[in-house]
Design a protein around this nucleic acid. Structure first.
Lengths: 298, 298
DNA sequence: ATCATGATTTAGCTGAACTCAATCATCATG
DNA sequence: CATGATGATTGAGTTCAGCTAAATCATGAT
């Protein structure tokens, strides 16, 4: 076969040969030792030669393996260096931000045009994920994370408070009458996401005595709850920052402007030292500027 | 991110840059042009630079792309040459044969020990597949294919005739009585694989008049039919070469030794010129020697 | 004797990589 | 000038290479 063996396997081989350890190679490549072991087994099978001599807890290169490693080491060094040269060149023109899908949809993406207008030379990439992403592994420059802050080994700054406020369509609100009390919510469908307790806490804080906090449909995610609310099914607790634009526009209303404050907030999180890169500093400034603005985007 | 971009994408890039054509690169890599296009798009996104300038029906390298290609070309040449050196070294010690799973299970694997004893220096790999494999793409040295022979661009030799014969367990055969006729098969369950017409043809050739050829369970593959027959469910048409060992042992019997001859046969198929490699010539000789033997393996 | 360590393996999972087919924008041809 | 060919692109759907998790094995250290 004139095709190359799996390049992933070559990478696993080169790293293992350099470290003389599959465990260290696995750490470097962000995979498990089992994955490296399998890759190398398959590479040896494809090539028809043994590359390593296995001892119980260590490796030695065979003569074939040592010869192959000498060339692979050079090849991978060339690949790494050429790739680093190119990506370094784009580093201050492309930034990757990670945040939750909800935050992206409701807060960040609507403002993106303002950032692009202010900084046409910087290309912002948004990686929407609930996963706890690894800066180095996932190529993330900066993150907006929802939580308590204080992430180990990272810098974080509180960016945006987070409070829940019940919102609904104007049509749904009209059914509450001209001067509603919180107990009138008993006449509406309470829409839940998986955190049912949020309604319970809000009703308690608002002083409601005749509303069953546990009643109403549950959606597995905030997006489902949001769409159901928009369809007029009832009233949902939404993060204020997500709906402030629609509240300003009047397409959504908050019949009871009582927020449920939370210890949780959105934090700007980045590797120590990241602000030395001009583009990241620029993005940070812009984000804080945006959270200080009172008017959401047009 | 200190990780490399996808090495598959680098391979797609290097081939496209060398050919200045994604279609030619796709042909070389045995993938579709769409796959190459997507790989390169993702690579450019990961690197944050444009590597190619697209014209309607052609490509040109950008200056970043030309610089990157200069290094990738060297890296891939190193990888290819080192890999070829090692695999050439194993070429006469490892051979890959492809054939159907049935042929492997029933004919080839039972004889493998004899080959290993005769040729301890040759490692035989069996790739069991019904797929029409590509010698070059799939790293196949020699094939045993069931069919009519005469494959374009390949040499083929008729290796083993193929005829169907009805077989069953001794217990099932006993229910037919001491001197059964083919019409007595009406009292047995006829076991089919997806080719129902085989029983019909066999019964016709055998002169049966009172047996319903279409009756009986159908298994989606030969293995299912075989296992059902072994479990005593009834009688199945099996390729004689597959069961001759069990017939010799007496674990299976052929109550009516009438074969259903076929134009189809097993053919030894290999690329023109392959016999110049000593190991392939050795394997060919051994295979013809095995089909000439009357006794199947112990 | 027991525990730690690193390699190996099996079973099961998943998303990167693929195919397929349609589309687009030229360029060649009659 | 109309038509067909060509090569790149893309969306939708599929698949299996590559992965994880967890268990096992064989030392070596304590």
């Amino acid at each position: 076969m004139d095709q190359l063996p799996s390049l992933s396997a070559l990478r696993a081989f080169e790293a293992s040969a350099r470290h003389l350890s599959m465990t260290l190679a696995a750490n470097e490549l962000h995979v498990t030792p089992g994955a490296v072991s399998l890759q190398i087994r398959d590479l040896e099978s494809a090539l028809g030669v043994r590359l390593f001599e296995r001892r119980t807890r260590s490796l030695a290169l065979t003569s074939d393996g040592a010869e192959y490693f000498a060339t692979m080491r050079t090849a991978f060094r060339l690949i790494r260096e050429a790739t680093a040269t190119l990506t370094m060149r784009s580093k201050d023109t492309v930034l990757t931000v990670t945040c939750t899908a909800g935050f992206a949809t409701h807060w960040l993406v609507p403002r993106l045009r303002r950032f692009e207008e202010a900084h046409p030379d910087i290309d912002l990439r948004i990686s929407a994920s609930h996963r706890m992403m690894d800066f180095q592994r996932d190529g993330i420059d900066i993150a907006i994370r929802h939580g308590l802050g204080g992430y180990e080994g990272l810098a974080s700054e509180r960016l945006l408070d987070d409070e829940y406020v019940p919102v609904c369509t104007p049509e749904t609100a009209a059914t509450l009458g001209p001067s509603p009390t919180v107990d009138d919510l008993a006449n509406l469908t309470l829409i839940h996401d998986v955190y049912r307790r949020d309604w319970e806490l809000w009703l308690q804080a608002a002083g409601a005595t005749r509303v069953n906090a546990m009643h109403g449909p549950v959606f597995t995610d905030g997006a489902g709850a949001y769409h159901a609310m928009k369809a007029g099914l009832g009233i949902a607790l939404m993060r204020r920052s997500f709906v402030e634009q629609e509240l300003a526009e009047g397409t959504l209303v908050a019949p009871f402007p009582i927020g449920l404050a939370s210890a949780l907030a959105y934090h700007l999180v980045y590797p120590t030292g990241a602000l030395e890169r001009p583009a990241i500093a620029v993005l940070r400034s812009w984000l804080f500027s945006e959270v200080s603005r009172t008017a959401p985007p047009a």
